[in-house]
């Protein structure tokens, strides 16, 4: 049970990083990204390709980060001529194209079977110290990224992002270059997602295209909506709440003596039902966005 708790906490930290990074785009800059999982995929495949070519984990992290930054710039470039909703659909399409690419380009990505056997980051430590060290690293990185995001959005820069989100025409009339203003949060967000992907790859020791289904993007979206769009604490809280709820569904099944099919159905119900409930009754999420206050 202790190992399971460490596992769920580690996964919650990784999803917390993803929720933070998506929140920077959607919650603050108003960039409706439905292809966020592709930025995470840059991190996982960066780690896997570096491992397959024996370049070492540092190269994997750099490769993943560079790929995510380039993809984020491509997303931003695409957004110059598209409205918010069309841009969202375009990001979803790009994520699906990249997943198909990863499925088919076996020479680079290992194809549908993916790449196995990545080393765990603290694999040399005996249990439970190895997983505990991984959890510690993930938790520290989550805290660092949270502090970075807080610093970004609580300052004047954050106000500029909010103006972009709420009134782009007004922002433009005041001299803000909307394309440049969109680019920066996308790249920072991409880098955070890539770090999460890198950690995930070395934690699960396997990278494959099945990890990049668009359903994963919508799971991160639901974490944000439940936690509170436009609030970094809410994003992390939503990720932890959803992750723990989903992880403990099998225990409920066992306690009630229900069939195995119940687990998958209950998880879907939890995500869909939770999402619907918050959209209907608490649109601002568990921890709403802070309006007003002091700004650097």
């Amino acid at each position: 049970m202790f190992e399971f708790l460490i596992h769920v906490s580690t996964m919650a930290c990784l999803f917390g990083l993803l929720a933070l990074s998506l929140n920077l785009q959607v919650g603050f800059a108003g960039l409706v990204n439905f292809g966020h999982i592709a930025l995470f995929g840059c991190g996982t495949y960066g780690a896997a390709i570096a491992f397959a070519n024996q370049w070492g984990p540092v190269a994997g992290l750099l490769l993943g980060g560079a790929a995510a930054a380039l993809l984020a710039l491509a997303f931003a470039r695409l957004g110059r001529n598209l409205g918010a909703d069309y841009w969202g659909i375009a990001t979803l399409s790009i994520a699906e194209i990249l997943r198909t690419f990863a499925t088919n380009e076996q020479w680079l990505t290992g194809g549908a079977q993916g790449i196995h056997g990545l080393p765990m980051l603290f694999g040399s430590l005996p249990a439970p110290w190895g997983p505990l060290a991984t959890l510690g690293l993930c938790a520290v990185l989550l805290a660092v990224c949270w502090a970075l995001c807080q610093r970004l959005v609580n300052g004047r820069y954050g106000l500029a992002l909010k103006l972009l989100r709420e009134e782009p025409q007004l922002a433009s009339s005041l001299g803000y270059d909307l394309a440049a203003l969109r680019r920066t949060p996308l790249v920072i967000s991409g880098l955070i997602a890539a770090v999460a992907g890198f950690l995930f790859a070395h934690y699960t020791t396997f990278v494959g295209p099945d990890q990049l289904y668009s359903a994963e993007t919508f799971l991160i979206w639901s974490m944000l909506i439940v936690g509170g769009l436009g609030n970094n604490l809410g994003a992390v809280a939503g990720a932890f709440l959803m992750q723990f709820l989903l992880a403990y569904v099998p225990f409920v099944k066992d306690a009630l003596g229900l069939p195995s099919e119940f687990v998958a159905a209950m998880r879907l119900t939890l995500v869909g039902g939770g999402l619907l409930a918050f959209l209907l009754w608490r649109t601002q999420g568990l921890i709403p966005e802070r309006i007003g206050g002091r700004h650097a």
Partner: peptide, 10 residues
């Protein structure tokens, strides 16, 4: 409101 603005104190 540039990125540097995020580092300035209130």
């Amino acid at each position: 409101a540039g990125l540097g603005g995020a580092l300035r104190r209130w």
